[in-house]
Amino acid sequence: MLHNAFASLTDLSKPVAVVAMALLLGLGVFAGLCLTVFCFVVRLVIVIRSGSKCKPGKKGPISVLVVAGSGGHTTEILRLMDSLSQSYSPRHYVIADTDKMSEDKIRTFESTKDGRVSEGRFTIQRIPRSREVRQSWGSSVVSTLNALLYALPLVFRLRPDLVLCNGPGTCVPLCVAGLLLGLLGLKKVLIVYVESVCRVESLSLSGRILYYLSDYFFVQWSTLKEKYPKSIYLGRIV
């Protein structure tokens, strides 16, 4: 019976069989892709949703990856760092490799934080800048991907409990790298985003992306809280 069916199948004219096989194969690949994307999205949602249950503070010191930007971004994030207790240690500061000012600011800040410098409690890491001011969107995508190549090994090596950032372009690839650690089940990295105080009515480009990917998203003006209900508003915090 089976043999007969097989024989009749081979009896079919060759082109029809080839087309049928190709169609089946295509359908299989497509279904496989859909399933992969579906699984990926489900996993992504699970990882992002798991943020509120993640309490690294219960286990001891929290290692932090601090994404400093340039100029105003660095000043703002250092004000936030100043408010955090010694439970947040070690602190790894990431700066863009073209940024000379931020390193000085960070070193000055760390040396005055508790009036004593102790090497090893903080480090400074450099990655290529992902987006220069006024760079076009197209070339931004390319340089962001380039920055991701540097961000991935950095985040995988440091495995921070927390990524803290406030909007420089560099923070998107770093947060994506942190998210990937969670997706692979290696470690849940909490993403904390604080939108700059300069943003009153609209989010920055990084903010618009990380609103969906972060675990805690802070805004500093009530207008933004109304527009982005998932955000956290505690008044001005810098």
Binding site: G57, L80, S83, L84, S87, V194, R236, I237, V238
Partner: peptide, 18 residues
């Protein structure tokens, strides 16, 4: 001046810092 302490308190609570 802004109140970074509000941020620190919120984060301590959310992350379970004792």
């Amino acid at each position: 001046p802004g109140k970074p302490k509000n941020f620190a308190d919120f984060l301590d609570k959310a992350l379970g810092v004792q």
